[in-house]
């Protein structure tokens, strides 16, 4: 019996509070079964269905990179029933994970190119998987220049601060951190991500840009990227949809002929333009 809905059991090893308001937490989990741990291989951009038993399931993108062995990380914003239950979990608790599902960032076609990452808020989570994959010592040489523009509403809303520091120190990437509005302790850049993008003004030549964030940010980022000369095929983003099954059957993530859980969540802007605006 193949039951595509049967999750594997994983233990929450570590919970990291990400934001000042504590509405985003990163969960580092390990499969209880060694065999599953070996078998579970994924690519940057894929997601998993996370179960909290007694509550339900939700699709969450994997924020760790496949280069980080032995564990998975999920960054979760407290939004609905499942994410709230997850936030109430403690280290050591057991949850269910099935997947990985969906497509992934087109890593192969990105080789040899300049990569421009543009993230906003919790939208950094799926990008982070690819960023860490690219920055991994074994892979870094396969890619050209790496530019990262990341912003949040306020300093307290920035996620992965513990990792942003590392990125800032690296000399092989251009990292731009911004907040919409700073506070007393903020000495960094202020400004909306799309505006910073224009300031940075990356060249579209031999470049791919990968963006994820709140819908309104994505909208203006894409507008500005087009102004900068990027073609729709050079712009990669990842969609959020209501999903249940994760395996292209339950129907709710259907957009046109695509199922976001199976054909997505990663789409180029060129692909999105061909799809109905129902996302």
């Amino acid at each position: 019996m193949r039951n595509p809905y049967l999750p594997d059991i994983a233990r929450i090893e570590k919970i990291i509070q990400e934001t000042a308001a504590n509405d985003v937490k990163t969960f580092r989990v390990t499969f209880v079964d060694d065999e599953v741990r070996e078998r579970f291989s994924y690519r940057p951009g894929q997601f998993s269905e996370i179960s909290v038993f007694g509550v339900g399931e939700a699709p969450i993108s994997i924020t760790s990179s496949p280069t980080q062995k032995g564990y998975l990380e999920f960054s979760v914003k407290k939004m609905g029933v499942l994410t709230t239950a997850l936030h109430h979990s403690a280290e050591g608790d057991l949850i269910g994970i099935r997947g990985p599902y969906g497509n992934w960032f087109p890593v192969e076609s990105m080789e040899g190119k300049n990569l421009v990452f543009i993230g906003g808020g919790i939208g950094l989570a799926p990008l982070r998987s690819l960023i860490n994959y690219v920055l991994d010592d074994e892979n870094r040489g396969r890619f050209n220049d790496v530019t990262i523009i990341y912003g949040a509403r306020s300093p307290g809303d920035l996620v992965f601060k513990w990792e942003l520091e590392k990125w800032e120190k690296r000399r092989d990437i251009d990292f731009y951190l911004t907040v919409d509005k700073g506070d007393a302790g903020w000495s960094g850049r202020e400004g909306f991500v799309p505006t910073v993008l224009m300031e940075v003004s990356p060249s579209p030549e031999n470049a791919v840009t990968i963006t994820c964030g709140p819908p309104i940010m994505i909208k203006f980022v894409i507008q500005n990227l087009l102004k900068l000369g990027f073609t729709p095929a050079q712009i990669v983003t990842t969609l959020e949809m209501r999903m249940k099954c994760g395996v292209g059957k339950c129907g709710r993530c259907n957009i046109g002929s695509k199922y976001v859980c199976k054909d997505g969540p990663v789409f180029t802007y060129e692909e999105l333009q061909r799809m109905p605006q129902e996302y």
Binding site: M1, Y5, L6, P7, I9, D93, L94
Partner: peptide, 28 residues
């Protein structure tokens, strides 16, 4: 589509066991 049984609140038995998922009876 599945049944589950979780022991000891959500921590299981503390050694990774105590949570099981299974096919509910009489489905097929």
């Amino acid at each position: 589509i599945l049944g589950y049984c979780v022991d000891g609140a959500f921590g299981g038995n503390g050694d990774g066991t105590g949570v099981s998922v299974f096919m509910p009876e009489g489905v097929l």
